[in-house]
């Protein structure tokens, strides 16, 4: 077994997250899927850090977490305000910006 397995796992998780974004309609679940994709990216960063023998990957993943935290805060606030005005958390209902 080599560290490549971690990368395969990360690829699988990323794909699952991407499919989740495409098929789920609840905005919160979609958001969670985005988080899953970020986590998959983090796993690759940590694994590459190990393969390359430097800590830069781990630091990068740390930054990703910080950005993810900020993003979640804003994203959830947006979901809240949309829900407040439209009484729905479905991403399909927010489809006014169209032809």
């Amino acid at each position: 077994m080599t560290p490549t397995y971690y990368l395969v796992l990360a690829a699988a998780l990323f794909t699952i997250g991407a499919v989740g974004v495409l098929v789920r309609r609840n905005a919160i679940v979609v958001f969670m899927c985005v988080e899953l994709m970020l986590n998959a990216a983090n796993l690759t960063l940590v694994t590459f850090s190990r393969i390359n023998g430097t800590l830069d990957g781990q630091i990068m993943s740390f930054f990703v977490m910080v950005v993810a935290a900020a993003e979640v805060v804003i994203g959830l606030a947006i979901i809240m305000s949309i829900y407040r005005s439209r009484r729905s958390a479905s991403v399909d209902d927010a489809n006014l910006l169209k032809y």
Binding site: T2, P3, T4, L7, V8, A11, A12, F14, T15, I16, A18, V19, L22, S49, R50, I51, N52, G53, T54, L55
Partner: peptide, 24 residues
Amino acid sequence: GIGMALLLCTGLARGIGSVTAVGL
């Protein structure tokens, strides 16, 4: 999704399939 996963796995396998890690 499946296509994406397959492509990524193919790339990984062909690119760094048998790499040995330096370790931290």
